[in-house]
Computed example of a mutant assay.
Amino acid sequence: MTDPSSQEHSSDDEAVDAIVRAGPGGAIAVAGIATAIVVALWFAFYLFVFLPRSA
């Protein structure tokens, strides 16, 4: 006799496997956006703080 909870666990495992197979696209997108924001802030700080002080 099969246990109903083991069938639910099996379907949960299949769902997790499908998510993992899809790849980390969202995480890569968030990391890319965060990196772009940091680089933009660095350039803005450089242009509006460092360059005016050196002139």
Rank of each mutant, 00 (worst) to 15 (best):
D12A: 14
D13V: 12
D13M: 09
D13P: 08
D13C: 12
D13S: 14
D13K: 14
D13N: 15
E14I: 06
E14Y: 04
E14L: 10
A15Q: 04
A15R: 10
V16F: 08
V16D: 01
D17Y: 06
D17N: 05
D17S: 13
A18V: 08
A18R: 09
A18I: 01
A18N: 04
A18P: 03
I19E: 13
I19V: 15
I19R: 11
I19A: 15
V20A: 09
V20L: 13
V20R: 14
V20F: 07
R21N: 11
R21W: 07
R21H: 11
A22T: 07
A22R: 12
A22P: 01
A22E: 12
A22S: 08
A22Q: 09
G23W: 11
G23H: 08
G23I: 13
G23E: 03
G23N: 08
G23C: 10
P24Y: 09
P24G: 13
P24T: 14
G25F: 08
G25H: 10
G26Y: 01
G26F: 01
G26N: 06
A27I: 05
A27H: 04
I28V: 12
I28K: 10
I28S: 02
A29T: 07
A29L: 12
V30P: 02
V30L: 13
V30N: 04
V30W: 05
A31P: 00
A31L: 08
A31W: 00
G32P: 05
I33A: 12
I33C: 04
A34L: 06
A34N: 01
T35E: 00
T35F: 01
T35A: 12
T35I: 04
A36Q: 02
A36W: 04
I37M: 13
I37Q: 02
I37C: 10
I37G: 10
I37H: 02
V38S: 07
V38D: 01
V38Y: 01
V39I: 15
A40S: 14
A40E: 03
A40D: 07
A40T: 14
A40I: 12
L41H: 00
